[in-house]
Amino acid sequence: MAVVRFGEAWPELNDGLTYRDIIRSHDSGGDLSLIKFYSTKHHSSAPLLGAKNGTGGCRGSKMVRLITVDGKVVTDPDTVLRTGSELVYHRLPWKEPYAPHMLEVLFEDDHLIALNKPSGLQVLPGGLFQQRTVLTQLQWRIKNHELCPVPVHRLGRGTSGILLCAKTKFAKTRLAALFADKTSAVANRKVDNEVNKVGKMSKIYRALASGIINEDEVVIDQPIGTLKYPGVAKGLYVASLSGKPALSRVHVLKRDVQENVTVVQVEIQSGRPHQIRIHLSFIGHPLIGDPLYVTGGKPQCSVPETVDETFAEDG
């Protein structure tokens, strides 16, 4: 059977981004200026950068095109904002980092499509990648306005593998429920044989772990929470006793003593962010090539005292 691939080349610049905000009473404090608001709310996304170096942004000519308050263009960055004001910031288009654009179709019918996602391609918009995503390519390919193509789960940008996407709202609801069954079973701490009976959806990955794992099978149930980390606004996901329940089953496929690595197959019965990376590093066998997580399920250079116990939310 012929392999079906699709994908449109990315334009040099994306379409920009629009941020919409409403000033709340706890934001204003009586003297909140426009430039102060954006320096804290969208500090990495730019109107303030030009203000600091005199090249544009809030204090430059771009301000006229970028920001409106209650529908009116604002040119004074020191404008004081009042509670209830509606702000719209039109971020100018930018060139996103490199990402592959071709996708292979593994299965497709009227309700869903299974894709082989390449490493380096983000699934949903976030950070610098607002256009160069799987979602964008799906929307470009399926232009039927009666359909709403959308991925129903995520794979990390650096992870390759099968990605299920719904083409209809009905399919999205049913697939999402199947994925949720496994996670909810783990969260409710059901006994092992009950967990295996919940739902009909499994997520199985293969990975290359550092070191030799002596056991043929390892079950990891370390909770995953978040850690305050520089440059990550909502915190970085890590192994944390105060986190949410997570369960991974690790099966050893091959041990390479000479290279000191182990090929493993991992079935995750919950869908926490970075779960496999965190769990394998937690038991002392970080993924080969992982630039972040080290033994213990924590990032390099992290300080345990910086863990915020209130930060145990999924992204």
Rank of each mutant, 00 (worst) to 15 (best):
K143I: 11
H145I: 10
L147T: 02
P149L: 11
V152R: 07
V152Q: 07
G158F: 04
G158A: 10
T159F: 07
I162N: 02
I162W: 06
I162Y: 05
I162G: 03
A166N: 00
F170K: 15
K172G: 09
T173F: 08
A176W: 03
L178N: 05
L178T: 04
T183S: 15
S184W: 11
A185V: 07
A185Q: 05
N188S: 11
V191Y: 07
V195L: 05
N196Q: 14
K197N: 08
K197V: 03
V198L: 08
G199H: 07
K200T: 14
K200E: 14
M201W: 02
M201K: 01
S202E: 12
K203I: 08
I204E: 12
Y205S: 09
R206V: 08
L208Q: 13
L208K: 14
G211H: 02
I212M: 06
E215A: 15
D216F: 00
E217P: 00
V219Y: 02
I220C: 04
D221H: 10
D221A: 12
Q222K: 14
P223I: 09
G225M: 01
L227V: 00
K228A: 08
G231A: 01
K234H: 09
G235I: 02
G235R: 02
A239N: 08
A239L: 06
S242K: 13
